[in-house]
Design a protein around this nucleic acid. Structure first.
Lengths: 138, 138
DNA sequence: AAGGACCTTCCAGTCACCGGAAGGTCAAGG
DNA sequence: CCTTGACCTTCCGGTGACTGGAAGGTCCTT
């Protein structure tokens, strides 16, 4: 099947498949006589694997590691677990950072009347040296 | 003061200050006779404002809008509020997406014994067509 | 034969910077 | 006066993970 079919079946865009090949995440596909890339079911399964891992936020680098482990029938599950747990930790840190941001923003927004008047606690909260700002940030 | 001093006082790296000037987020700084950029307290305050807004996750584009509003003594606070609320929405969506990812990952990890044995529910969860996978994803 | 939907490669752009090279400037110390 | 080292300047390239588009070749149908 050609790249468009593989893209449709795997859920990975054709452009992205070429990109993955270029960076070596997947091996170079076979070619037809006319130079078109040619894919089989196994390649599509690999692409689906990649797609799922990426949708869980694994970096392309991590996906490369996971793919290697996936192909290795003798891998230790501990290796996979380590990658996944490292990723969970990173995800949790991102969540915490975003929650802190949300809290700060909502505090500022709740104090802003949001009408035609120019005074705005949001800008005042962002502005240093304003409204008794101690320079310690928000 | 030169760019290094402005960087230290504002918390924005010198490289980043030049970048902000290049993309037009801040006006081009004055220059000394020898060509060094020259900053005053007002510029440092602007940089601090930018630094705080960026630390709250506003895009550089949004910071530009906020700066315009900040400089406009007649702005309506509603304009600021709209930008901030749009950003909160985006932040909340990111948090939700990350939480879903975390949940999925933790489900997979909890089923993985994580030892020397090769069978691993994490990889099986990522692999399509495996273990009764319906192709419906995780 | 013609059209449209594919495919190919290559280049550029995204976002928000960071690193480094090559070269000019400044202030202090010998 | 000269050197040293810490600054500053510009410019170029790289990051991650793609995405868009141009120019040109191929395939299939009518």
């Amino acid at each position: 099947m050609n790249i468009g079919q593989a893209a449709k079946r795997s859920g990975v865009a054709a452009k992205t498949i070429r990109y993955y090949e270029e960076i070596g995440l997947i091996p170079a596909a076979g070619r037809t006589a006319s130079g078109y890339r040619d894919y089989g079911d196994a390649e599509v399964e690999t692409l689906k694997f990649i797609q799922k891992a990426r949708s869980l936020g694994f970096s392309v680098h991590d996906v490369g590691d996971l793919l290697t482990l996936w192909r290795d029938r003798d891998r230790a599950s501990a290796d996979v677990r380590r990658i996944a747990q490292g990723h969970v930790l990173a995800v949790e840190q991102k969540i915490a950072a975003l929650q802190a941001i949300r809290q700060t923003l909502e505090g500022l927004i709740s104090r802003c009347h949001g009408d035609d008047r120019p005074d705005c606690p949001i800008l005042e909260g962002l502005a240093p040296g304003c409204c008794g700002d101690t320079g310690q940030g928000l």
